[in-house]
Nucleic acid binder design. Structure first.
Lengths: 354, 354
DNA sequence: TCAGCTCCAGGTAACGTTTTCCACCTGGCG
DNA sequence: CGCCAGGTGGAAAACGTTACCTGGAGCTGA
């Protein structure tokens, strides 16, 4: 038992010494891939329990065994989208017998690049990047370089909810049909008779997600022969405050509108609050539609109509495609469909304009 | 460049060969902890870039260098509490120069034990367990054993939002003052004149969190000389549906009450929905208070009064204490304070009983 | 009785780093 | 002119594990 009080971890050698066998035999008993006499196995197992021995994963990895790891790099953990994408990634990663490493970059693109490098050192089998963002030319170039470096060593760069980097960049891309969802949402409002539909949250037109959603909004208008009025296209970022302020701005300036398309559900929650404060009824006076279908959406009053995104499926799909590139060689860029969820916040346009 | 097209990762030896130096020198250039002539360093750096070399973290870890890792084990990623605790854990872990490994056990205590074992193999410097749960005697015993095994190897078991396992179990414990928060919440309602306060969600009395919150509810009654009426103590689990169903049950059975203490905010959202459906006004007819202060709470209509839990701080504190046991030797069990957040869902008790 | 086979166990090398020790070279100084 | 110090670089061991190869014991059949 003397060994037990030592500060170091017991090694295979220690177990071997206690059991009176060689290190090789201990390894074989634990792996179970080689015939070992029952009595010997017994002694080894007893020694293992006595010492509370567990193998050193790093040493095992060095020689080729042990579980591989998948790295998950995201802006932060508190966004409502993360939880579900993360859930999908973690579940699939575990199901595939891999371990899941998580890092956040707080929106700093350079930190993101650093993390990819770090994960390359960690021998990550796949490096998953989540969420859109603004990509500079330099950033894209470095990203391309890293993607190629990963590819060369049998690893994989995975983009979740972010468009491909370039045509010849080896990577797995799984994104939402943001444009299509925005088209459907806008189309839904137009079908209800709305003609003056404001959109809130296009403050960063270079943001890939923003761009796609705004494009869907525009295309729906075009499809119905309607024009997009600049006064109803409002900037703002992806937060509640932004939705609140810009809705108040619309009201203060007296811009006519019967519906609001919020770029995300979180923005929509701010919109609803501002409308409520102004004494406007939803959906009788103003219809509101969001985007993302976060859990909050169902709990708002009224329930928020929105575009459902298959978050969990996104995470799972990404991992599945990345780890089985041989089977899914042709599907390394998939666009997941979205669908409308109609709750109580959208209704027919009011007859007489507000 | 021939080396570049190979499937293997370049090693320090490959770099050395390209640069025309020894492996030792390459290592020294990269570590920067030994004088190397400028010209030599230049050649090495060029070779590194040419080969896109990154060190193998596993090999490095084996010999003592490289970043350590912290394991984060939780039920699942989609609960609203996780995001913030996880954020705290990840931030502090990164700030301390460690990597963060995440696993979920979906509520299965045995899976949780397996994961601890797995993380022990991974040489995790700390293994963080999040959230309460039902602990059987066998589970506690095994947990004790694992805590000791971790301790023996210089690692640490960390319990977040979960009471200590036992008196002599080496572990770091950071929990919320659940009893105190529940006392404050109930006290708040009593101060507003409520005398018939239902509590919803005590379906699993062995659940440590449930037990503590119920204890606070009971103590507040006692402190004011009030009795707890069994008909107003309702079971139910921690979900929205549970809050909804049990509120309907109360109404259907005609049990008198002027306030409801929901065991979590999520349960409270179901309560609010049921009350709204029944045509009751909050807080004019019924006051509602929740627990946890999840982001949703502020967005409900009316805003939900609740008990704020410092989630992010919990995560950060846990990691800090665990990694600096030498400095915080006496503080390996801390109870973080909570505070009431009064929003619109609580008000004076109605004069005449419903 | 002995070759040959099966069953089981051990020795050794290898994985990719870092680190410790040692050797070389170049100057400067006595 | 020889010697020592300081500045550089390399060889080898070590980390803990597994895989490959070798070898001994016991049994079987000729």
């Amino acid at each position: 038992m003397g060994r037990l009080s030592s500060g170091d971890r017991p090694t295979v050698k220690d177990v071997a010494a206690v059991a009176g066998v060689s290190a090789t035999t201990v390894s074989r008993v634990l792996a179970g891939n080689y015939p070992v006499a029952a009595t010997t196995r017994g002694r080894v197992m007893r020694a293992v329990e006595q010492l509370d021995y567990v193998a050193n994963a790093q040493a095992r990895a060095l020689v080729g065994g042990g579980p591989r790891t998948v790295a998950f790099i995201i802006r932060d953990l508190v966004g409502p989208l993360f939880a579900y994408i993360g859930q999908g990634v973690e579940q699939q990663t575990t199901a595939e017998g891999r371990l899941c490493l998580v890092c956040t970059h707080n929106g700093d693109p350079n930190r993101e690049l650093e993390l990819i490098e770090l994960m390359r050192e960690q021998q990550a089998e796949a490096v998953v990047l989540v969420g859109g963002g603004i990509r500079s030319a330099a950033n894209l170039e470095r990203m391309t370089q890293l993607a190629k470096a990963l590819d060369r060593t049998g690893s994989r760069l995975v983009l979740c909810g972010r468009p491909p980097i370039g045509p010849d960049v080896p990577s797995t891309v799984v994104e939402y049909d943001n444009e299509g969802g925005a088209f459907a949402a806008t189309n839904h409002l137009i079908s209800l008779g709305h003609r003056q539909i404001a959109i809130i949250g296009v403050g960063e037109p270079e943001h890939t997600t923003t761009k796609a959603r705004f494009a869907g909004y525009t295309r729906a208008h075009k499809a119905h022969g309607l024009n997009v009025a600049k006064q109803r296209v409002l900037p703002g970022v992806y937060d509640r405050e932004s939705g609140y302020q810009h809705t108040k701005g619309l009201l203060d300036r007296g811009v006519p509108f019967t519906a609001i398309f919020a770029i995300t559900d979180v923005v929509a929650s701010g919109v609803l609050f501002a409308l409520h404060e102004a004494g406007l009824r939803v959906p009788e006076d103003v219809s509101v539609i969001g985007y993302d279908d976060i859990p909050l959406a169902a709990d708002l009053t009224p329930g928020l109509s929105t575009v459902h995104l298959p978050h969990e499926e996104l995470g799972r799909t990404a991992i599945r495609l990345a780890l089985h590139r041989d089977q899914y060689a042709l599907d390394q860029h998939v666009v997941l469909g979205t669908h409308l969820v109609i709750r109580g916040s959208t209704g027919p346009a009011p007859q007489q304009q507000k």
